[in-house]
């Protein structure tokens, strides 16, 4: 019970900030509230199926398959697959966190998940189309190449740093460890 309460401390602080903002500047508070509601609508539509997908992955996808496709031994193929999965148009980054977590638990490598999250955030195909339109092909193209390079370096670096940790103990456990 205490733990459940603790989880709500952060949201309650936000509500208090909103309340004090409303006292100082009603206009700003109203604008903020409107933005929040816009995002709330989007999240309410997107998050339920995403978590369900995470549940289905957990239940159905065999660990050895993920290890083979996205694990440390998957090399370049796994990297390409991770980037490809990430570029699919499927919503904001917080959608990808639960998916990455369940793939990690099933044996995907840290490098590949960094690539997956990075591609999801920075290399989305519809997003790049908007970028080309407003910032030009040269800008978008150069950013794409540099970002991909950076992601590979970051991924390998993180793999190196986190590998020393014994068996993913840096990954928070969900209540259903059942493999």
């Amino acid at each position: 019970m205490k733990k459940t309460m603790k989880r709500w401390v952060f949201p309650i602080i936000i509500v208090l900030i909103f309340a004090s903002l409303a006292l100082f500047s009603a206009n700003t508070a109203e604008r903020s509230l409107n933005v929040t509601f816009d995002y709330l609508k989007e999240m309410a539509i997107i998050m339920p199926p995403v978590f369900l997908l995470m549940g289905l992955i957990e239940v159905w996808v065999p660990k050895n398959k993920i290890e083979k496709w996205l694990g440390r031994g998957s090399r370049i193929k796994g990297g390409i697959l991770s980037v490809a999965l990430g570029t699919l148009p499927a919503g904001p980054l917080y959608v990808a966190f639960p998916i990455a977590a369940s793939l990690l638990k099933k044996g995907a490598s840290v490098t590949n998940m960094v690539l997956f999250l990075g591609a999801w955030a920075a290399l989305k195909i519809p997003q790049i189309m908007v970028e080309v339109e407003f910032l030009g092909v040269a800008f978008a193209g150069l950013r794409f190449v540099l970002t991909l390079t950076a992601l590979i370096i970051i991924g390998l670096l993180m793999e190196l740093i986190l590998k020393r940790q014994t068996d993913q103990d840096w990954l928070p456990k969900t209540e259903n460890e059942n493999q």
């Binding site: 989880r7 709500w8 952060f10 949201p11 936000i14 509500v15 900030i17 909103f18 903002l21 700003t28 508070a29 604008r31 903020s32 509230l33 409107n34 933005v35 929040t36 509601f37 995002y39 709330l40 999240m43 998050m47 339920p48 978590f51 369900l52 995470m54 549940g55 289905l56 957990e58 239940v59 159905w60 917080y94 639960p98 969900t174 209540e175 259903n176």
Partner: peptide
Amino acid sequence: AFKIAFKAFMKSLPSLLAILGIVGLILGV
């Protein structure tokens, strides 16, 4: 799968809501 999904969802709900609030505050200010 539904059970796992529901538990995970409830667990991240507070931080999800907090994010929405922060996004609203930042874009509002």
